[in-house]
């Protein structure tokens, strides 16, 4: 169905959505959405950071991994809010954001962070029972280090958006 629709048309349709118009017309929305975005990204990045350090075997080593992983519920909830608020800030000025290098790189790294999570989940996480209370295997430590690096870069790039073309 998307055949024949250019990226520019999709962006224009996003910008013309009634909700985009409302966000553009009413100056209250941007600060509200940005505040929501900052709270939720702080929770995502903070919780992911400690989970990554635990995966790398450098934080709360005595705690069983399945205990540490209980924070994943909070991460999903906060990530949902970050995506929703981010999308609502993005939609009214979609073309401008997509032309911004920092924004594009940030989206690319969010995708990579998701991919890294998926690989971890489908791989070494399936054998969690083997290392739940012992040192994490190399694959888990690597996934933790990659995730930590990606999320720090995502925060840096997110903050760079207004300073970048």
């Amino acid at each position: 169905m998307l055949q024949g629709i250019s990226l520019q048309e999709i962006l224009t349709r996003l910008e013309d959505l009634p909700i985009s118009q409302e966000i553009t017309d009413n100056p209250i929305w941007f600060p509200v959405l940005e505040a929501m975005h900052v709270v939720s990204l702080g929770l995502v990045v903070g919780a992911v950071l400690f989970l990554d350090l635990r995966l790398m075997g450098v934080f709360a080593r005595k705690e069983p991994m399945h205990e540490a992983a209980k924070v994943i519920g909070l991460i999903w909830l906060a990530a949902g809010l970050a995506f929703m608020s981010g999308f609502l800030m993005f939609a009214p000025a979609a073309s401008r954001y997509l032309a911004n290098t920092a924004f594009d790189l940030k989206m690319g790294l969010i995708f990579l962070a998701g991919l890294n999570m998926l690989v971890l989940h489908l791989g070494v996480w399936r054998r969690l029972a083997d290392w739940n209370e012992s040192a994490p295997p190399f694959a888990a430590r690597l996934a933790g280090a990659v995730s930590l690096t990606l999320w720090v870069l995502i925060v840096i790039l997110g903050r760079m958006v207004p300073f970048t073309q």
């Binding site: 900052v38 709270v39 990204l41 702080g42 929770l43 990045v45 903070g46 924070v71 909070l74 925060v155």
Partner: peptide, 25 residues
């Protein structure tokens, strides 16, 4: 200033993550 803002955001994330981990548990 951008570097300070980024560091401030990362520090805030550590504190929010700690509050989430500890407070919610």
């Amino acid at each position: 200033i951008p570097a300070m803002q980024i560091t401030h955001l990362l520090g805030m994330s550590v504190l929010m993550g700690s509050a989430g981990l500890y407070g919610l548990r």
